[in-house]
Design a binder for these strands. Structure first.
Lengths: 263, 263
DNA sequence: AGAGTCTCTTTATGGTGTAAAGTGATGCCT
DNA sequence: AGGCATCACTTTACACCATAAAGAGACTCT
């Protein structure tokens, strides 16, 4: 379930996103609006946080506000626009300033951890398409923040864009793996361990020559960590791979800086 | 639209995936089956390639075979299982062997390019959840292939898993950005340029102090490449960022090897 | 008082996956 | 040969989805 940006009136979308309330026509006839875009976005975020993007329906949001689904269309042109507003709203939770006193490595690490936690707090954000960015104030603020951190490396915009892509895709991918595992567990009522223990013997049965056919794959599974404090089994492996992967990326940035300095 | 693995009977799913046709009971009463799992999977891949994951419905697949949607349920337990089978089927298109004569850097680059093209050929594969892997033969073969390439770096399984995560998430993320842009263009009939040129002036209008508020974001946009031969405007920027990002990752792997050698 | 305008509801349309029941063809057994 | 169990496949039905269109009622202006 990937959601696309508002395909309707570009002006209306932009006005909504940047909080342009339109004319101050407070003496308009008709009943006073009991709802507001703010309230709807807030309720919708609640629904999405609780039930995921799959549970986000206009009916569900309306119900949370004691209204019908159609009532929302007075405030918001389409569901797509609503999702855009939700996305930019929660992006506001991200820190916009980092203490760079400890160098860019530590700062990037902090940023990546914050961003990972953010996506896990609002897993549905991983389903918002990145192709046509939402163009909201908090989206730009988030971009500004990470750009500022990376700027300390003194690299040019070309390198910066490449590095940003690596870091962002890595964090999103890692978050997606964890989030999907959690959602699958919720939806099916089967934990990762149960799921795996149901399939593992079947795999051995159906592919008895597994170890011979896929020796590297078997090797890859070696030395996996056990679950840490309060951690789910599979997530401990992911958090290890997050730390290792981030270290690799940071080393890559270091090498890029060194090359740029020489060049 | 993220699709989860078959939540039904694990044994049936596995048998389907590994081609266990069950008993040879060819003298069963009733009409001969005119369809087959193979044919259904093939037709479904055709639908998904043409119309994306959003266009993949049991009705659409049935229609392509001159049947109703329900006819498919004779062969396949749920839509989720069908998607798993589709996924493992197309994974078979990936090369399973690479000439490592030119060193692991070139090999990883070739692999990444092949994988990117694969995802762009079948964009719906990006919507298949990675949390609970499909556990099909081609999935393992694909894992085996990349594991074998990375094995040349002489790193341990811990590092290998981290690096694999970085590379895979990067390629998938990059592919997703391109694929979503294409799908959005198809779905809305508005090209990326048209979309941007409709919003760019509105952004200036709605946020007149943009350059002051987001100086780094502006800087980040500098020195963007124009479209190359037969390339779409936005995709040229992405393919540049793919090359740069991959280089950063390869440098990071190099540094990791160097550290492991010292340690 | 009447008209116009607004919020919100009701109803309807065409889509989804799939459960349940029905149809008709086929091959085995008596 | 007749009966019947078994199969592939269709029909119908249900509970959802986004949203278009029209209606109900409240409010402020003239």
């Amino acid at each position: 379930m990937v959601v696309y940006a508002g395909q309707g009136d570009a002006r209306r979308s932009m006005d909504l996103m940047w909080g342009h309330r339109g004319q101050d026509s407070r003496t308009a006839p008709g009943p006073k609006p009991a709802l507001s875009v703010e309230a709807i976005v807030h309720a919708a975020i609640g629904v999405a946080d609780d039930d995921g993007m799959g549970g986000l329906s206009m009916r569900a949001v309306g119900q949370r506000l004691g209204r019908t689904a159609m009532a929302l269309y007075t405030y918001v042109p389409t569901k797509g626009d609503l999702v855009d507003l939700m996305y930019d709203r929660v992006l506001g939770e991200l820190p916009t300033h980092y203490d760079v006193g400890f160098g860019w490595r530590g700062t990037v690490t902090s940023w990546a951890e914050d961003r990972l936690e953010f996506h896990l707090r609002h897993p549905w954000t991983l389903q918002v398409s990145q192709a046509r960015p939402v163009l909201g104030p908090n989206e730009f603020a988030a971009l500004e923040t990470v750009a500022e951190i990376l700027h300390r490396t003194d690299l040019g915009p070309r390198q910066l864009r490449g590095i940003l892509g690596v870091v962002l895709h890595f964090v999103r991918g890692q978050a997606q793996t964890i989030a999907e595992a959690r959602e699958a567990a919720m939806a099916t009522g089967v934990s990762d361990e149960e799921w795996w223990y149901a399939r593992s013997p079947l795999l051995a049965e159906v592919a008895p020559d597994f170890a011979r056919r896929f020796p590297m794959a078997v090797r890859m599974e070696e030395e996996k960590p056990g679950p840490g404090e309060g951690e789910v089994y599979m997530e401990s492996a992911i958090s290890e791979s997050f730390a290792v992967g981030l270290e690799v990326i940071l080393d890559g940035i270091d090498a890029t800086i060194a090359k740029a300095g020489r060049g």
